[in-house]
Design a binder for these strands. Structure first.
Length: 482
RNA sequence: GGCGCCAUCGUCUAACGGUUCAGGACGGAGCCCUCUCAAGGCUCAAAUACGGGUUCGAUUCCCGUUGGCGCUACCA
C-alpha cells in the first residue's frame, strides 16, 4: 500500500479563512489517522495577489489551531521546496514538454481579442469559452510569432469530443463532457504557471495520495485528471468538501461576520473549540458525541463520514461549544488563560494569588462562555463594587437591611474559620437571632459585596473574597445605601 | 446563459429499504432544582422541497421539477 500523503495548499492572499481551517484540519486528521504525512504547500503563483506576511500569518494561525504540518516551508522534506514561486522552472519544463508532445500549444491571443470574443459570445447568448484560435496555428506561424517576441501563454488541449469521468471519495462518480471544458491556460505570459498546472505537477512530485479540498474545485478537476494523463502520471484520489456557508446560505464570506480564524481568536474563542466546531461542519462521528479534542478527532476521523451538502457557520453553537471546552479544561490551564486575560485588562497592575484566582475560576466557570467574562461578568472579584445595580437595590435593599448587615458583620467578625460552611452557619445564626428569613440577609449581602443580583452562590463569593474584604464591603454598602 | 454539485427541524446533523408516532445537539418555550445568575435534570414546539416511478415496503434507489450553491480568468 502506498503511503498516505495529504496537503493543504493555500495561497497567501490574506488571512486563514475558517473554511481553510477546516480543509487543513481534515487533511491533517486524515493523514494522522492513517499514519501518513501532512504537507503544507504555498500556492503563490499569482504575483499580483501576494500579500506580505501572509505566509507567516498562515503558519502561525495553523499552529494555533494545533494543526502541525510534517513537511512544508521551514520544515523541509525530500520533495521541496514547498513554495510554488520557488519551483517555476519545474512547471515551465513540463509546460514545454506538453507543447512538444502536442498536448498543449502556444497561444498568442491578446487580452483585447479575448475580451472581444467574450463580449461577442455573451451577446449571442453563447457559453463563453476560448475559440481555440491558436490551436490551429502552423509550425511556421508559431515559430515566427515566437521569434518576433509576441507574448504568449501555453494552453492545454482538451479532447474535442467525449467525456471524462472521475471518482470522488465524497461524491462518487462525476462526469463532464469535454465540450464544456476550455483549453485552459497552464502557463501565463509572465512565465508563472496557473493553478491547474502547478497543482498537478506538485501533487505528483510531492507524492500526494489524497487531494482533499473545497467543492469549488470540483468543476476543474477534469482538467487536472487530463493533465495527469498527459504527463503519464496516476492521479491522486480526490475528496471535495462541502462549502461553508453564510446564514443566508451563500458561500461564507466577509460582510456577514468574521471569516478569518484570527478574528475568532481575538474575540476570545478557544483554539480547541473552534477546531471542534469546524470539524463538525460536514463530518460527524456517527454517534451523538459532539465535544472533541484535537486528539479525539484524530482517532475518530474518516472521510467516509464526511457529507456532501454545504453547512451554515452557526456562531451560536460555536459559543456553546466554547463554553463546553472552558468547563472541561484543567484548572491550571484555565488559570494561565485567566492570568493572560487579566494582564491585558484594566486590572493589570493588581496582583492576585493563584489560589485566589482558582477560587474565582471555581465560582465562575459554569457561568462564562469566554475567558474574558471572568472579568466582565464578575469584576467584583478584582475590585470592590463602585456602584450597586439599581433594580436590585429596589428589589432587595430594604430600610432595615443596613441594620441587619451590621449585625451580620459583627457575627462574621467573630468567626475564626471562614470557609463556606462556617459562613453559612453564621448567617443562619444571625438570621435566627434577628427573627428574619435567610433571604433577608443573603440578598442584601450579595448586593453589598458584588454590586449585582446575580452570580455564584453567596458563600462562594464570600469565601473567595475573604473575611476582611467582606467586612469592608459591608461597611461601604451600609454607608452608601443608607 | 452553459456545466456541475447539493436538498431531513431556524441551524449543525443521525438514519447506510423495514427495529421510526423520523433520533441527538445549538437556539426557543415551560417545569424542577435554588439565596440570585448559571450549570444540570425533565418536558414541549420544530424537518424528510414537490411530482412521478421501482418495491410487499421508501428519508433512504431511479427520473423529472423546483430551489440553493459553485464553476464558467493569463485568481486560486
Amino acid at each position: 500500500m502506498t503511503e498516505i500523503r495529504t496537503r493543504f495548499a493555500p495561497s497567501p492572499t490574506g488571512f486563514l479563512h475558517v473554511g481553510g481551517l477546516r480543509t487543513a484540519l481534515y487533511n491533517y486528521l486524515f493523514a494522522r489517522k492513517n499514519g501518513g504525512t501532512f504537507v503544507l504547500r504555498i500556492e503563490d503563483t499569482d504575483q499580483s495577489r501576494k500579500v506580505p506576511g501572509a505566509v507567516e500569518n498562515l503558519i502561525e494561525t495553523l499552529e494555533w489551531g494545533g494543526i502541525r504540518y510534517d513537511e512544508g516551508p521551514g520544515r523541509e522534506g525530500d520533495v521541496g521546496p514547498y513554495i510554488q514561486s520557488q519551483r517555476i522552472t519545474l512547471y515551465q519544463q513540463y509546460a514545454h514538454r506538453l507543447v512538444e508532445e502536442g498536448k498543449a500549444y502556444y497561444c498568442f491571443c491578446s487580452a483585447d481579442r479575448l475580451k472581444e470574443l467574450r463580449a461577442k459570445q455573451l451577446a449571442a447568448k453563447q457559453a463563453t469559452s476560448y475559440d481555440r484560435h491558436c490551436r490551429n496555428l502552423s509550425g511556421e506561424e508559431v515559430r515566427a510569432l515566437l521569434k518576433s517576441g509576441v507574448p504568449y501563454v501555453v494552453r492545454m488541449k482538451i479532447p474535442l469530443a467525449g467525456a471524462l469521468t472521475f471518482d470522488d471519495l465524497i461524491r462518487g462518480q462525476v462526469t463532464i463532457s469535454y465540450e464544456n471544458i476550455d483549453d485552459q491556460v497552464i502557463l501565463k505570459s509572465d512565465g508563472y504557471p496557473t493553478y491547474h498546472l502547478a497543482v498537478v505537477v506538485d501533487d505528483h512530485c510531492m507524492k500526494i495520495s489524497h487531494v482533499i479540498r473545497g467543492e469549488e474545485w470540483l468543476p476543474s478537476t477534469p482538467k487536472h485528471v487530463i493533465l495527469f494523463g498527459y504527463l503519464g502520471w496516476d492521479p491522486p484520489k480526490f475528496a471535495h468538501l462541502p462549502l461553508l456557508l453564510n446564514p443566508d446560505r451563500s458561500k461564507l464570506s466577509k460582510r456577514q461576520g468574521d471569516v478569518a480564524v484570527e478574528d475568532y481568536r481575538t474575540r476570545g474563542y478557544l483554539n480547541e473549540a473552534l477546531v471542534n466546531f469546524v470539524a463538525l461542519l460536514g463530518w460527524n462521528p456517527g454517534d451523538e458525541r459532539e465535544i472533541f479534542s484535537l486528539e479525539d478527532l484524530t482517532k475518530e476521523f474518516s472521510l467516509e463520514r464526511v457529507n456532501s451538502s454545504g453547512a451554515v457557520f452557526n456562531v451560536e453553537k460555536l459559543d456553546w461549544m466554547n463554553a463546553e471546552h472552558l468547563r472541561q479544561m484543567p484548572e491550571q490551564e484555565l488559570l494561565n488563560l485567566l492570568k493572560l486575560q487579566l494582564a491585558s485588562s484594566r486590572f493589570k497592575d493588581l496582583k492576585f494569588e493563584d489560589s485566589y484566582l482558582l477560587g474565582v475560576i471555581r465560582a465562575m466557570r459554569e457561568r462564562v462562555t469566554f475567558v474574558k467574562e471572568f472579568e466582565s461578568k464578575s469584576p467584583y472579584f478584582f475590585e470592590a463594587p463602585q456602584t450597586y445595580d439599581s433594580d436590585v437595590v429596589k428589589k432587595r435593599w430594604k430600610p432595615e437591611s443596613g441594620g441587619y448587615l451590621k449585625k451580620l458583620a459583627t457575627t462574621f467578625a467573630g468567626l475564626e474559620k471562614t470557609d463556606k460552611e462556617a459562613l453559612e452557619g453564621a448567617l443562619h445564626g444571625a438570621a435566627e437571632a434577628l427573627g428574619v428569613g435567610n433571604g433577608e440577609l443573603i440578598h442584601p449581602l450579595r448586593l453589598a459585596v458584588s454590586g449585582t443580583g446575580s452570580g455564584p452562590g453567596l458563600y462562594d463569593i464570600l469565601s473567595v473574597l475573604g473575611k476582611k474584604e467582606t467586612l469592608r464591603r459591608i461597611d461601604a454598602a451600609i454607608e452608601r445605601l443608607r
